[in-house]
Simulated scan of single mutants.
Amino acid sequence: MQQKEQFEKIKNGKGFIAALDQSGGSTPKALAAYGVPETAFNNEEEMFDLVHKMRTRIITSPAFDPEYILGAILFEQTMDSKIEGIYTADYLAEKKGIVPFLKVDKGLADESNGVQMMKPMPDLDELLKRANERNIFGTKMRSVIKQANPEAIKAVVDQQFEVGKQIIAAGLVPIIEPEVDIHSPEKEKCEELMKAEILDHLNNLGEDEFVMLKLSIPTKANLYKELIDHPMVIRVVALSGGYSTEEANEKLKANDGLIASFSRALSQDLNVNQTDDEFNAKLKSAVKSIYEASI
């Protein structure tokens, strides 16, 4: 798949984006949910090896189907690992026809003024260079908003777009992800403030500076319609944010043009002890339900 083809698929394709990018901190949790206890590994290397096996099983499954899945977000370790002797991104693009993305943030800074900014990324240029060598199409980076603090929300969105421009300059498409905490008592207010800040940045982008957005499903249905229709936005995707698959799908359906980019909701029923038939059937049913909600 060439970049132009990938751009088209992400912009106009029917389906959703699979998030397979749990990193260091959330990996033990992801493995435990998959039925692999912490006693199964002794160090980080063994842990990443097990998680790569889990991701390989998902990606190589016939249920991981390009008819329903437009793209997949990878963790750095997954990008540098191989599936059936081919680097993961090439396997996705060539064997599956699925567009590869890379998570590039280094995690969240401590909460301050009701938000969590991204930690500094001193090696970002180096990582983007590697991402290009590995044929990655776009990137993803996450911040979190918990309180309706206008200055702090502005700072989060400013940081996202500042790094986003660095990513665009490297020839990749950034997924801008300022997540609003679904448990925030001020969720709706946070979303309105954030939307205004995002629009401000979108209106100041140059003519080739395309971005994607990854946002929590809004409290008020279709709040993000303006962002979805914006000429500089390739696609707006939603994170499940801790909702169960069923709840996330229900909420997603109320928003026209918003598609899913779920991680937990995709893999919540998968288990290491399932036979391939059981595993594929569970994955297929999750994929289909998320797809239905996305279209």
Results as ranks from 00 to 15, higher is better:
Glu151Ser: 11
Gln147Tyr: 02
Asp105Cys: 07
Asn132Lys: 13
Arg142Asn: 11
Leu127Gln: 04
Asp110Asn: 15
Arg130Ile: 00
Ser143Ala: 15
Lys103Cys: 02
Thr139Leu: 04
Arg134Pro: 02
Ala155Ser: 15
Asp105Met: 08
Val157Gln: 12
Lys146Leu: 14
Val156Phe: 14
Glu151Thr: 13
Asp123Leu: 06
Asp125Asn: 10
Leu102Cys: 00
Arg142Thr: 07
Lys129Ala: 06
Met117Glu: 08
Val99Glu: 01
Gln116Tyr: 03
Asp123Pro: 01
Pro122Lys: 14
Leu108His: 14
Gln116Leu: 06
Pro100Phe: 03
Asn113Val: 00
Pro150Asn: 06
Phe137Arg: 01
Leu128Cys: 06
Val156Gln: 10
Asn113Gln: 11
Ser112His: 05
Asn149Thr: 12
Arg134Gln: 09
Leu108Cys: 05
Met141Tyr: 11
Ala148Ile: 11
Ser112Pro: 00
Lys119Met: 09
Val104Gln: 01
Glu111Asp: 14
Asn113Arg: 04
Asp110Gly: 10
Ser112Met: 10
Asp123Phe: 12
Phe137Cys: 08
Asp105Gly: 05
Ala148Phe: 07
Arg130Ala: 00
Ala152Ile: 10
Pro100Arg: 03
Glu133Ala: 10
Ser143Gly: 09
Asn149Leu: 07
Arg142Tyr: 08
Val99Asp: 00
Glu162Met: 09
Ala155Met: 11
Val163Leu: 12
Glu133Leu: 06
Ser143Trp: 09
Ala148Asp: 02
Leu102Asn: 00
